[in-house]
Every structure is written in C-alpha cells, then in structure tokens.
Computed example of a mutant assay.
Amino acid sequence: MRNISDLIEQYLKQMLDSSGDGAVEIQRNDLAEKFSCVPSQINYVISTRFTLEKGYVVESKRGGGGYVRIQRVELPTLKGIQLHIDQAIGQQIDQNCAEGLIYQLEEAGHLSKREANLLRIAIHRDTLALKLPYRDELRARLLKAMLVTLLLK
C-alpha cells in the first residue's frame, strides 16, 4: 500500500496534468482535510517532491486566504536540451541535484525508467568512490556525456 505522501503527490500531479497551464493553486488546510492529515504533511510533500530540481516552482502565501501555487517548469525543446544540460550541471554537480535533473527528464518523457535508473546508479556516490570535489566534477562530466548521448540520439 502506498503511503499518504505518495497519495498526496499523485493527487497534485493529476491536478497539474488536468490544468490547462501546468499550474495549480491549493490551500494546505483544504488538502489536509481531504487526506485526513495535518497541514505540515502537505508542506513536507510539497517541499520534498515539488522542487526546482524536479521541475517545479512553488510559491506560497501564508495567512488568511493563503495558498500554495505549484507550477510545472517545462524543459526546453530537444534542440535546447544540450544548453540546458550544460547550464544545469556546470563543472560539478552534487548527487541530489543530479538525481533531480534525471527525475525531471524522466517525468518529461525524455528518459525511460530504465535509462533513468542506469544514470542514477552511474552517478551515485558509492559508484564514484572519490573524495570531494573530484567526485562532483567526475559526476558532472559523466552525466553530461551520458545525457547528451541519450537525448540527442
């Protein structure tokens, strides 16, 4: 059985998919009531699963009538992906940011689940058993080379 965080994430993604502009505004309390949880559970899901690295921008207004707006950030067309990869990765990249980029590309349909899993294991800190900053530099070079090969085939 899936946990409450998975259910909330799935619900929000369905809302985003059905919205015309790739954005949704919610109220934490209303969503918490719908899932019979505390509003901090909603905050947790939003802050961990709807990050910029995963392709989302979150805007929040607190107080009476406050809301949370989640906007999906679309990746550039395949033509601009190499530039996006260069900018997103740079000369070095840590594991969390790299996994976020892989997640974003997989969610956008540019990578299969199998390709994403292969990339994740190839750039994992246990696979790249080097000291920092060398590990992040090697991860950046590997990730760029693999993504360009996979995406611009």
Rank of each mutant, 00 (worst) to 15 (best):
M1N: 10
N3H: 13
I4D: 01
S5V: 10
S5N: 11
S5K: 09
D6N: 11
D6C: 10
L7Q: 15
Q10I: 10
Y11C: 05
Y11E: 15
L12F: 12
K13F: 09
Q14V: 14
M15K: 15
M15F: 05
M15A: 12
S18M: 01
G20W: 00
G20Q: 02
G20R: 03
G20M: 09
D21C: 12
D21Q: 13
G22K: 09
G22S: 14
V24Q: 11
E25G: 02
D30Y: 14
L31G: 08
L31F: 10
A32H: 01
A32G: 02
E33A: 08
C37M: 10
V38F: 08
V38S: 06
P39T: 04
P39R: 04
Q41D: 02
Y44A: 06
I46N: 01
S47H: 14
T48C: 06
F50K: 02
T51G: 02
E53P: 00
K54V: 03
G55S: 13
G55A: 01
Y56T: 08
V57S: 12
V58K: 04
E59C: 00
E59T: 09
S60C: 05
S60P: 05
K61T: 14
K61G: 06
G65V: 03
Y67C: 05
V68L: 10
V68H: 08
R69Y: 10
R69H: 08
I70C: 03
Q71V: 13
R72S: 10
R72C: 06
R72K: 13
R72I: 02
V73A: 03
V73E: 12
E74F: 06
L75R: 07
P76V: 06
L78T: 14
G80L: 12
G80I: 08
I81L: 15
I81K: 12
Q82W: 00
L83G: 12
L83D: 15
L83M: 05
I85P: 05
I85F: 03
D86I: 01
A88P: 00
A88T: 15
G90P: 09
G90W: 03
Q92D: 09
I93P: 00
D94S: 10
N96Q: 09
N96H: 12
A98R: 04
E99N: 15
E99V: 09
G100E: 11
Y103G: 01
Q104H: 15
L105E: 02
H110Y: 04
S112G: 10
S112R: 09
R114G: 03
N117W: 00
L118A: 13
R120M: 05
I121T: 12
H124K: 14
H124R: 07
H124Y: 04
H124V: 03
R125S: 13
D126C: 02
L130P: 04
L132I: 10
P133S: 05
Y134T: 11
R135I: 07
D136F: 03
D136Y: 00
D136L: 04
R139Y: 09
R139D: 14
R139W: 01
R141N: 11
L143G: 04
L143E: 03
L143K: 00
K144M: 03
L147A: 04
L150T: 06
L151K: 07
L152R: 05
L152N: 09
L152G: 08
